[in-house]
């Protein structure tokens, strides 16, 4: 079958792509767009390492066909940093030492961003719920939760 034409806006830039019909959004992001900040962990929606923001919602990019999201807006971890430097969430993760190996971090950042965009002043419980789909196996969740709290306090869109 011929490739499918899709138009995606990723981190504010518009892309017209040809994708295979079984191509996952994760594959498109990593292999076509070469945005390798988004990680592949479990591949079955259990770890959240591949989390991106799709039309304002956190999703597992390993469970979405790119063809399904033609016309959508996507934010990946690369979309956080700007000319002004690191994003407040990234700064808070560094300050609170919320990174050890870093593999879960891009997904954590995306889940946190989706939360703060919708709810600028989340409670601790709301932060925990927002991050419940992201597994971390080395840093420990406490610092990550504190980092999101700090970022929300400082920045809270």
């Amino acid at each position: 079958m011929a490739k499918l034409d899709v138009e995606l806006t990723v981190n504010g830039e518009k892309y017209n792509l040809k994708v295979g019909s079984q191509e996952r959004l994760l594959d498109t992001i990593r292999k076509q767009l070469k945005l390798t900040g988004t990680k592949e962990g479990c591949s079955v929606g259990e770890c959240g390492a591949c989390t991106v923001i799709l039309d304002d919602k956190a999703v597992n990019s390993c469970m979405v066909l790119t063809a399904q999201v033609d016309g959508s807006q996507i934010i990946t971890v690369e979309g956080l940093e700007s000319k002004g430097g690191l994003h407040p969430l990234q700064k808070a993760f560094i300050e609170k030492q919320a990174i050890q190996c870093g593999f879960c971090t891009p997904g954590m950042l995306m889940s946190a961003l989706a939360l703060i965009k919708e709810n600028p002043q989340p409670s601790k419980e709301e932060i925990k719920t927002a991050l419940e789909g992201n597994l971390c196996r080395c840093t420990g969740y406490q610092q990550i939760i504190e980092a999101v709290e700090a970022a929300a306090e400082e920045w809270g869109v």
Partner: peptide, 17 residues
Amino acid sequence: ESSQTISGVDFENYFQP
């Protein structure tokens, strides 16, 4: 590497009504 990649076999038909 996942074998579910862009180089895999494509579906015969993909309908998105």
